[in-house]
Design a binder for these strands. Structure first.
Lengths: 352, 352
DNA sequence: GGAGATTTCGAATCCGATTTTAAACGACAT
DNA sequence: ATGTCGTTTAAAATCGGATTCGAAATCTCC
């Protein structure tokens, strides 16, 4: 009995066998060449006689050999993985961007490593360090609060693509939305509908895009000859709840307004809810415009008019830019211009 | 000129220097011990005299040494990374789960590797193969459509935690929500509000939980002595649009109903929109209950009554279970019971 | 003080590739 | 036949640590 058991144990030396256990050395000896030859064939490096190449290819297929990325990473310095620093893995805006990145990178044989910085520059730096220690071949940084200097510095060790800012540096490529123009568009849309008292719920002032959006709003107002009324600008932090609070504050201030432009959709949703609670109808009593065109904007009540930014394109473009950087090319990707998506949350102001 | 260039190249042998370039061998020689000693101190393996340990610790700190996870993975077989197979990186339900996983794993020094299977068993299997080839130490599989057999098989090579099903196997731990009970709860809630004609929008029949939810609905109906009316069950696929279609079909069928229970929140949002378009008010004309309690349920109009499932707890528990598995312990984690979160989309049916 | 038992370390091996170095081979000219 | 220049290809070094094994150092007890 005992002996039997032992024999049994010897039959399966490694309980975790089913996975790729075939090594380069095995295929090498299988077809009587050296491991370096197999390696070179695998990487397309150097020349090999067609006869051997074929034999090796056949052996690889026969044994079902897959090169071990870990060993490859150690020896070759390339891990075929790229680090992606996002702010929250479950962000409704960046989620689709991650998806775009995953897709684009996957097609090129790279694997993304997602980590979250939670809008905290120190944490972002930690994330980058972790990623770097894992020897990623490149880095995609979705916005965040890292300093330009820190970014430039990181770009010295590894190619970097960063979004949400405009920055020039060696080994660095930046991709930025035109927030200013987007906000102009949104404001202009309301203006063209006859609205003159347009409240603005601003984003988190710690984000540069919040300022740009505010400026776009002011610029459009100015272009239309509508005086800027500071009382109509409410502070927000890009989250739903701040949209609720902003509307409540606005309503309580008894300042007159016929439309609201929220600096992002999440706050617009909050605003819509606050209006609903106070018995105000969108768009009958108040027109509402958001920014970002989140997936949820389509199914909100009413469907939200918003400025489309296309996070998934952002992700794809960031990924292809990085891929270009990695293969030594100079990326030329540009983000599409923002555009209005008009749904049911805005309507023309009835004539006086 | 040529010579100058060459000299220049020799000055900066590695352009990507700033990142952790310190190796174990360097700290070893820095404090006059062998590299194996440093390694052993790092891993807590074996005993070392306090004097040396301290010296080494100091040297590590001084040089800012970080062990290279790639090399470590090769040598030790452990990569301190775990693969997470989700269905879509931007899923509103699984997003928070990923966040929970990231947090829990991060605390333990592990890095998650997220990949998406897109509800396709072949793709899921490919994801697992990629993950395995990257030598992850463990696997978390969020639901998905993989066969139990495939899962059991995977568990032979690496510890696995799977959600969304109940499955026993060596090296495998499963975590499942009680969908049946959740659906009972939701239905019971409507029943207790006086509703008798409750429509049910079912989930994608390819998911086992869709059946469980339907059964929960039927069970609650039966317990209350309300006859089951097949005409009130509408097919859905868990996406918003199917909620819209279901309500339109329901309305067109002229079947009487006072409440709708959607098998998930996304369909509930779609249903709410369809009702809104037809001029029906929630909850005044129709009460509406969802399932999952997505983050968006709080800010929808009206805020949606739903069955709370807690995806972030799911993620955390999956992660701690896996961590237990990895350290040889037997996980005992259990998911919390589903519970109703009553908001504003349901109301008592006025007496006849 | 010394034999035997421990504890503490260092050198050698290995993980699974990549890359460099150099030897073997072949064709062609001398 | 010998020598030379170019290809192929094999052997060896490397990447950065983990692990095993055995030797040296320290300790125990008689």
């Amino acid at each position: 009995m005992k002996i039997n058991k032992k024999a049994n144990a010897e039959v399966k030396p490694d309980p975790r066998a089913p996975a790729t256990k075939v090594t380069l050395a095995m295929v090498a000896s299988a077809c009587g060449v050296s491991s370096s030859t197999v390696s070179r064939i695998l990487n397309g490096t150097a020349v090999v006689s067609p006869k051997k190449r074929e034999a090796v290819d056949r052996a690889i297929a026969a044994l079902g050999f897959t090169p071990n990325p870990v060993a490859r990473g150690l020896a070759g310095g390339r891990t075929l993985s790229v680090g992606v620093v996002t702010q929250a893995i479950d962000s409704p805006f960046y989620g689709p961007a991650l998806r775009g990145i995953e897709e684009e990178l996957g097609n090129a044989g790279y694997s993304p490593l997602f980590v979250s910085g939670h809008w905290n520059s120190e944490e972002e730096q930690r994330c980058i360090d972790v990623l770097l220690s894992r020897r990623v071949d490149g880095l995609i940084i979705l916005t965040g609060r890292l300093s330009d200097t820190a970014l430039r510095n990181t770009a010295k060790s590894v190619p970097v693509v960063v979004t949400g800012r405009r920055l020039e540096a060696p080994g660095l490529y930046s991709l930025d939305f035109n927030n200013f123009q987007g906000a102009q568009l949104a404001t202009h849309h309301l203006l063209s509908l006859g609205h003159r008292s347009i409240a603005f719920i601003s984003g988190d002032p710690a984000h540069p895009d919040a300022h740009e959006r505010l400026n776009g709003y002011r610029s459009a107002l100015k272009a239309a000859g509508v005086p800027f009324n500071p009382a109509l600008v409410l502070p927000g932090d890009y989250r739903e709840h701040s949209g609720i609070e902003a509307v409540e504050r606005l309503l309580d201030s008894r300042e007159r307004f016929t439309a609201i432009f929220a600096a992002n959709d999440q706050m617009a949703f909050g605003a819509a809810l606050a209006l609903y609670r106070r018995g105000l109808r969108v768009p009958d009593d108040v027109s509402l415009v958001g920014f970002d065109d989140l997936a949820a904007a389509v199914h909100s009540i009413p469907p939200l008019t918003s400025v489309h930014q296309g996070p998934s394109e952002l992700g794809q473009l960031a990924a292809t830019s990085l891929l270009n950087l990695l293969s030594g090319r100079v990326p030329t990707e540009r983000l599409p211009e923002p555009r209005m998506v008009i749904r049911s949350s805005t309507r023309a102001l009835p004539g006086p």
